[in-house]
Design a protein around this nucleic acid. Sequence first.
DNA 1: ACCTGAACACCGTTCAAGT
DNA 2: ACCTGAACACCGTTCAAGT
Lengths: 219, 219
Amino acid sequence: MAGRRRWSTEEILDAAAELLRTGDAESFSVRKLAAVLGTDSSSLYRHFRSKTELLRAVADRILLAAMDGYHPEGDWKQRITALALRVRDAFGRQPQLAAVWGRYASSGTGSRLVMEEVLQALRASGLPDDEIPVRYHRIAVLIAALIASEAHASAVAPEEREQGMELFRVAVLGADPERFPALAHFARDVRPLGADRRAAFEEILAAQLAHIEAATRPS
Amino acid sequence: MAGRRRWSTEEILDAAAELLRTGDAESFSVRKLAAVLGTDSSSLYRHFRSKTELLRAVADRILLAAMDGYHPEGDWKQRITALALRVRDAFGRQPQLAAVWGRYASSGTGSRLVMEEVLQALRASGLPDDEIPVRYHRIAVLIAALIASEAHASAVAPEEREQGMELFRVAVLGADPERFPALAHFARDVRPLGADRRAAFEEILAAQLAHIEAATRPS
DNA sequence: ACCTGAACACCGTTCAAGT
DNA sequence: ACCTGAACACCGTTCAAGT
């Protein structure tokens, strides 16, 4: 572990992916990665110009692994849904990765595989070619936002989560029925944002895809 | 400015909102806030247990200001859209606020006003009462995710943004047509995630609302 | 009783000085 | 030529010691 040797860029990426997966993903740092490798953080800056560049490379690598064994199944909507869930699982508890990927995607094979499959599915939908890029963009924005938001939420420390839940309860159950009649009426049934995440993800995406599908049918 | 006096919680919140609005919102820190107030960061911890608690309070205050002068107009879909855009504008360039709000909302009057208005709009949609809480939840998750994602993206430093754009261009324009035929085919028309944010926000939300509307009509 | 200087345990990043 | 110790400029948070 503490061996004094040179690390290849590949090895550094693998170690980073491992640390993000097993460790406390929200607190991943260049210094911790260097410590795992038995070296100083400064030496990593020979391989990457910044932490963001490192994270982008790791994100692509994780995406590549997530796409391993993927085969398109079902109609175009099922294909996009299956793909989105794969990406969601891959970044699920890694807010730092989800954030860099959600900002600009990355430039490696992993990202390309995801883009390619979504574009192919959209072609199979019957949408005219000239509408596909903008539909692709909306789907990408939606998926990236949902995944980043979930990853962020899942990394919140337990005590902060509990505080947040309590705040939500107070906001809802303590609402004055005179001033907030609808809120008071639904107080016992309204769920906090963190509840039911998987179902929310699938339903929101399904609504978006149904909207696109409507555009493929003559009105 | 450097006066040695005691600050009320109200004054601290106002100063924090001001600093978030005018300063470099992504790098807002307790220490910088203390410097603006002419005191030490440690003294702020008498008013707030943590930075998150401070940010939650500021977020609610900003939401309250954003709701000032709001009057429902149009049908239920227009009401929710107008509201979502108000919240979007309020948090637009403040990723730290958007993040805390997106995690659990907050417990103040600002959050309650937003919740109340969305719930009232949903009631006006003709949706049966027992379906409203889950629909509300999906809308809230979607809006929070989109706003946090946009706020995050807008706060990215210019040089990192340029790097990201360049990566995206390479990923798309450099894709091997043999392996990524659809990507190569659409290479010149696919837009990066950061493009066209406002239109994307409105369209994605509209798709979600159209999906809900479909549930209000007999099939 | 109230406040705060100083410290603790961290960050990302740079670069002069060493091998 | 290559590497790295030490430093720079920060963080959020705590608490003993002061007034």
